[in-house]
Computed example of a mutant assay.
Amino acid sequence: MTATFPDISLSTERLLLRPYDEADIPELVEMMNDDLVTAWTGAPRPYTEATARAFTTGGAAAERTSGRGLVLAVTELLTQRLVGTVQLQNTDWRIRGTEVGYLTASWARGEGYAGESVLAVVRWLFGSLGFERVELRTAADNSASQQVAQKIGCISEGVLRGAGLIRSRAGDDPEGRWVETRTDLLVWSLLPEDLDDADDADGSGTAAGEVYETGYAPYPDYADYSAAAQRR
């Protein structure tokens, strides 16, 4: 029997992390067509309504039912506006380890939402599911993503040379076509004791928030696709 993550939602003081649904399509399309999302992820460009519909009605849930990982929409708790995505991927159930990815809508950047949502997921993994390792990989030039890793207490482990792909406009033309180039990936990790040390220092050990089941219906026959894409 394939091990899978439970069908859950998580909440923090400001955010609700939950499965995607069709009501998210308009905001998802807007978020994914941002130039920075295109540059740092492998998401389709343009990201169409059809792509968003296929993802929200099947692709996201298939990540969970396949055992590969978990995809959660990140929304503001009060307004329910879509803030971003957190995804678990490349999960190894034998060693209780997984890789976390994230992206943030352009309007929501600079508010600390990425770190807050990732920490909620990591604390849930360690505290409720007995996971022992969470890995995070950032493109060498993606300083914003690296700042998130540092702020949540990740430990830098090294560099995977030429292990990722990023995109940029040809000739730096803002209207030019997107081209892929190879990049190094920085590897970061979190272990349970890393969060224990941080919580002892700042008294935030209860910041994981509430966890509850959602009853989200999976569509396991959907083709493999990652909302957070291959690498941030």
Rank of each mutant, 00 (worst) to 15 (best):
L15I: 08
A73P: 00
T57S: 00
D24F: 11
L77H: 08
T85L: 03
T12A: 14
Y47A: 11
F131R: 03
G215I: 10
L36Y: 06
L191E: 03
L70I: 06
V121R: 12
D200S: 13
G59C: 04
F126H: 02
E180W: 01
K151S: 15
T57R: 01
R53N: 01
G153P: 14
T56F: 00
L129I: 14
Q230S: 13
E157Q: 07
V211K: 10
A60Q: 08
D196K: 08
R137Y: 00
E213D: 08
R167F: 12
A3M: 08
E99A: 09
F5T: 07
N142W: 07
R53V: 02
D141E: 15
G153Y: 05
D7N: 15
A60M: 07
D35L: 10
T98A: 04
R96S: 14
T214Y: 06
P44W: 02
S143A: 13
E210Q: 12
P220E: 14
P44K: 03
G203C: 05
A198N: 05
G158F: 09
A201H: 13
Q89K: 11
L125Q: 00
A120S: 11
R94W: 14
T48F: 01
A227E: 00
P192F: 12
L10M: 08
T75W: 09
E180T: 07
G67H: 13
I152G: 03
D224H: 05
A217F: 08
E30A: 15
T75R: 12
Y222C: 11
L72N: 02
D202S: 13
E76H: 12
G205Y: 05
G203P: 07
A201D: 14
A229V: 09
F55S: 00
M1D: 09
V122N: 00
R167W: 14
C154P: 06
S11H: 13
D24W: 10
A39I: 06
W93L: 09
Y113Q: 08
G110H: 06
A144F: 05
W124F: 15
C154K: 13
T75Q: 15
E175V: 10
Y225P: 04
L88C: 02
L82P: 05
S204A: 15
W124G: 13
D173P: 04
R45V: 14
W40A: 03
N33D: 14
L125H: 00
D7C: 13
W107N: 03
F5D: 03
S145G: 10
P6K: 05
K151W: 11
G162Y: 10
S156H: 14
A198W: 01
P6C: 06
G209Q: 01
Y102T: 03
T181D: 07
E135C: 15
A140K: 09
G112Y: 07
D172H: 09
T41S: 11
A228K: 05
G130K: 07
Y225M: 11
V118H: 02
S11C: 12
G110L: 06
V187W: 08
F131Q: 04
L16C: 03
E27C: 12
D196W: 11
A170T: 06
T57A: 00
Y219S: 13
A108I: 15
G127P: 06
T104W: 05
L72S: 02
E27H: 07
Y102F: 11
G171C: 03
G110T: 01
A114K: 00
E175I: 10
I152C: 06
T91L: 01
K151V: 14
T41M: 01
V159F: 11
Q230D: 15
L190C: 04
